[in-house]
Design a protein around this nucleic acid. Structure first.
Lengths: 285, 285
DNA sequence: TAATTTACGTAAGTTTACTACATATATAAG
DNA sequence: CTTATATATGTAGTAAACTTACGTAAATTA
């Protein structure tokens, strides 16, 4: 199993902690890297609690003791994931908002990595393998995700198309049937048009796959749903990470399909790759 | 250079170590994970040396002492493992290829975060702020990136469009002039058509921004380039992380523009957000 | 072979972390 | 509202771990 990032675990547990534990958590989260280098005494002093409180805190998070906790914390920090404690401020400059945005995306991806259901991924790959035809549907920001998916999946040598036009989507959904897979992408899963389209497709016996939010109306309508629980962007400055997550999940699915197709399929992919060579300037490296 | 993996550093230094240091190194290298969890006493015993020898060994590798050394070792272990098996194997199953792909994307983003030039980002934001019109150009996978960019930047209340049609791109480039910004996206930066389009636009006095590879023909042609040095995908199974990187950089740019516009601009963004509400099913949360 | 440097270990000292216990605070019951 | 009980937090002592100082042994050089 994948070990969940300690920093996220602490953040999630924050509301359930008692007074002194909260103090310790805050000190650690405010500068996790410093925490890995300080002794139990310094940390206790910073958090204004006693040393045993720090020790108990560590044990609460399944560490053998303080040193073991520091070790685990260091490991979490090393995986390229940094804790983003602040959203972009109006007075941030390039040097601060750039890493903030990238870190926030990284964080979201790490969360998805730890929470995504492998069983579901497998189910979706199953459906995609069996598909005679795949339609990728998305509106707005999800429109470009759908388009990217088309660009990935046409390589599998089966009819694939993407659509961001609601009327087109309705028409295609109503003419679909067994063997057709409608892959519906939506961040909220609450856009009426999209949900209706899914319903129509479902009614005709098509397979409907949803890449959308948990417990959304769209999710309820699908044959299989890959639910992504990306925190809503409340902050005006914060860009939606869900597109990125969706794209990466589509990468995962494409990889799954490729692997299922087996090694005999690789020459086909190679052929597509090579087809682009004549369009490029030679690389001198 | 970036901080090298401690295990590699030790391996490299192996020939230059003296007797007891070699013993210590061998014990650590044989099971680095165990080393991070053992005390200086146990490690000394295993290596058949005295405790101070272990301590000196740690200091030789720029650690403050044994605990600090363990910390550094743990860090390189955490990031190292992920780097080592980051490629998808033909016999991987869902539980292994899913985290691999996500981790690989995370690693790429972390690299970009550390290497991206803030000065360049600032320059590009400058150009975008001054633009009277923005065209996003991209082909293939970059086509959907361009489309996503359009979806982000139209919010700034200025004429924005995206194009993935080479002929259309040529025509627009040839009619452009001062005040027009052509934002050209290309993973390789070597696609002839794209480079030519950039050249045409440049010739007419337009600003050409490139989101592309370092030292590529396209990069040479641009007014400002945001070079992204994403490792080429040699592995058939590995999806291109560059799209993701491009999208995130566009997020950064959009944020930069938003911040420059100042707080007076926020109501406008809010208005766009609210415009979607009637299209959605209510969220009961 | 002697001088000098480098390597290594012993033992003492110092820091660090843990445990057991006591007190305080909060919660529930009467 | 008081008492009982559980929970939370701190104090002090102890054990373990780590570091330093110093001395001896080995290796290197003159």
């Amino acid at each position: 199993m994948h070990s969940q990032n300690l920093i996220n675990v602490i953040t999630d547990a924050l509301p359930s902690l008692n007074k002194s534990e909260t103090k310790v958590a805050q000190v650690i989260l405010s500068d996790p890297d410093a925490a890995t280098q300080s002794s139990i005494a310094t940390l206790a002093k910073k958090a204004q609690v006693s040393e045993p409180s720090v020790n108990r805190f560590c044990k609460r998070f399944n560490a053998a003791g303080f040193p073991d906790f520091k070790l685990k914390l260091a490991k979490s920090l090393a995986s390229g994931i940094r804790f983003v404690n602040r959203n972009v401020d109006p007075d941030d400059d390039v040097t601060s908002y750039t890493p903030k945005i990238i870190d926030s995306t990284i964080n979201t991806l790490a969360m998805v990595r730890d929470k995504i259901s492998h069983a579901r991924v497998n189910q979706v790959v199953d459906k995609l393998i069996q598909a005679k035809r795949i339609y990728f549907f998305g509106l707005g920001a999800s429109g470009s995700v759908a388009r990217d998916a088309e660009n990935k999946f046409f390589r599998f040598n089966l009819p694939v198309s993407s659509h961001d036009d609601v009327l087109m989507q309705r028409m295609l959904a109503s003419t679909g049937g067994t063997g057709d897979v409608f892959f519906v992408i939506s961040h909220t899963g609450r856009t009426k048009e999209v949900v209706e389209v899914a319903e129509i497709a479902r009614g005709n016996g098509s397979t409907v796959i949803g890449l959308t939010a948990v417990d959304s109306p769209l999710a309820d309508m699908c044959t299989v749903t890959l639910d992504v629980d990306v925190p809503e962007n409340t902050d005006e400055y914060m860009p939606m990470a869900s597109r990125i997550v969706h794209l990466v999940i589509l990468d995962v699915l494409a990889t799954g399909v490729t692997l299922r197709r087996g090694p005999d399929f690789l020459p086909h992919l190679e052929k597509i790759k090579n087809s682009l060579k004549p369009t490029r300037y030679r690389n001198e490296n």
